[in-house]
Design a binder for these strands. Structure first.
Lengths: 119, 119
DNA sequence: CTATGAACATTCTGTTCATTG
DNA sequence: CAATGAACAGAATGTTCATAG
């Protein structure tokens, strides 16, 4: 999905999909927890993703054939279902991570160039 | 315009407005030339702004009270008008540059953090 | 044909509403 | 109330059309 021509910076969606893959690799967290952790991590940079973008990212990874859903009872005495994820195709996941890295590096380069040239 | 809460990376519009200010500082170029120069500079990063975004950036700087328009005959024997720009308020321009720098730095930090954490 | 600009269309993302347990 | 998801709404940006010289 990191696309071809004329594009500016990496999109939020790809950024979040990357972290969703990472959370699944670490075998932890469902949607809301992922959001909370990301908010904590990136709040210092003024970025706090909202729940819709988190879910859209997860759903898109399913459509991509990278993740699959699995329901699970939540910890504790609450008996409330949450949705957790596993890899449907880990090779695809690794490939996607590689593509996003390329896009992140590209975006960094672009910003760095701007800072160098203007300031 | 670099805004407050929950936001992801800097927007293309702000990025281009920064360069439009820089071009006016250097006293050169009208819209199309600015676009061509930016395409040359950032093509290596896969970014080639289109003409609409260039004009929207210039127009917005006028609305902001930072630039003002001035028509001018094009060089050479072509007698075709082009639109060039001067500062309407250079203090405002400098302030805007400062704000965009903050936003660029913030965006770089965000991307760097992601690269560190994931790869 | 080149430069400018507006109109139109789509994509991306934020906000609100609905459902379930 | 917490989690998930869909619907709706707006903002950001790309594509196409219009006008002038």
């Amino acid at each position: 999905m990191p696309r071809g021509e004329g594009k500016f910076l990496i999109k939020q969606r790809a950024f979040l999909k990357l972290f969703m893959i990472r959370f699944v690799e670490e075998n932890k967290l469902y949607g809301m927890q992922a959001m909370d952790e990301l908010k904590m991590t990136f709040k210092q940079f003024g970025y706090e993703p909202n729940h819709s973008e988190i879910y859209r990212s997860l759903h898109e990874l399913i459509d991509d054939g990278i993740l699959k859903r699995q329901k699970k009872l939540q910890e504790g005495a609450k008996y409330k279902e949450v949705v957790i994820y596993q890899f449907a195709d880990y090779e695809k996941a690794k490939l996607y991570k590689k593509q996003v890295k390329t896009d992140l590096d590209r975006s960094m380069g672009l910003l760095r160039k701007a800072l160098e040239d203007v300031y």
